[in-house]
């Protein structure tokens, strides 16, 4: 997946979140977005996912400019898988129905095909036994894994994950991370916002460091973690990796 960002501006509630963010064209299969809280990671992910139209500038995904009007943005969202921190699944539907609803209503897939596909996907990630449970009957980790499956079953052009494990205890987080690693290894492009730096280092091939609404540093993951260029980045890595 190619990503390029030109002078991206975005304010929310009178506050500038992204302030002329720029990134030359970078190619990677797994992007990790790291940096201090409030640096704009989640906001950038939402812009890329077509959830937040920027105030200015542009994002190019696979050399294609992200549209601005709501209708085209909706088309973008239909081709993008997104998973947030928590409460992704629809409360009133079972895991299986959560997969079926977007497939049949949004993607327009025939019911039988959607059923077969949903079941196959749940089986692939060992969640078939839980297919007919509602979210409150699943553990937090299972909920997140079903949410990832729901994002994957539409065969998205990329999977955007916004701190998918930050609301989970370490064991459940490990299960979810394992699944993400498997998905990435099978070739689905992934863009991940995470605080698990060790995990980011292991699975990503490009890391972007965001602080104060700018991408202050980026590069191949191994080089990034071994030789951070800027002082801010070095301090951040020191602080977080020490824990």
């Amino acid at each position: 997946m190619d990503l390029e960002i030109r002078d991206l501006q975005l304010g929310l509630g009178g506050k500038d979140i992204l302030q002329g963010m720029t990134l030359p064209q970078v190619s990677a299969n797994v992007f990790a977005l790291i940096g201090p809280s409030g640096g704009g990671k989640s906001t950038l992910l939402r812009v890329i996912g077509g959830l937040l139209p920027p105030d200015g500038g542009e994002v190019l995904l696979n050399r294609e400019r992200l549209p601005e009007d709501e209708k085209s943005l909706r088309q973008c969202r239909r081709k993008t898988g997104m998973v947030f921190q928590n409460w992704n699944l629809f409360h009133h539907l079972t895991a299986f129905e959560n997969l079926m609803l977007p497939l049949t209503q949004v993607q327009g897939m025939p019911v039988e095909e959607a059923e077969a596909k949903s079941m196959a996907c749940l089986e692939r990630f060992q969640l078939a036994d839980h297919a007919h449970k509602k979210p409150h009957q699943l553990s937090g980790g299972q909920q997140q894994r079903v949410a990832i499956i729901r994002a994957l079953v539409i065969e998205p052009r990329c999977l955007l994950l916004d701190e998918p494990t930050s609301a989970l205890d370490p064991e459940m987080a490990a299960q979810v991370l394992e699944m993400i690693e498997e998905v990435a290894a099978q070739g689905t492009p992934v863009m991940l916002v995470t605080h698990h730096l060790a995990f980011a280092r292991r699975v990503s091939d490009t890391t972007l460091f965001l602080a104060e609404g700018q991408i202050t540093e980026h590069g191949p993951t191994s080089a990034f973690f071994e030789r951070p260029q800027t002082e801010a980045c070095r301090r951040f890595l020191d602080r977080v990796m020490r824990m």
């Binding site: 993008t80 997104m82 947030f84 928590n86 409460w87 629809f90 977007p102 729901r150």
Partner: peptide, 10 residues
């Protein structure tokens, strides 16, 4: 979050 989920699914 439920509304954002729905929006993100298109």
């Amino acid at each position: 979050t439920q509304l954002e989920s729905a929006r993100s699914l298109g």
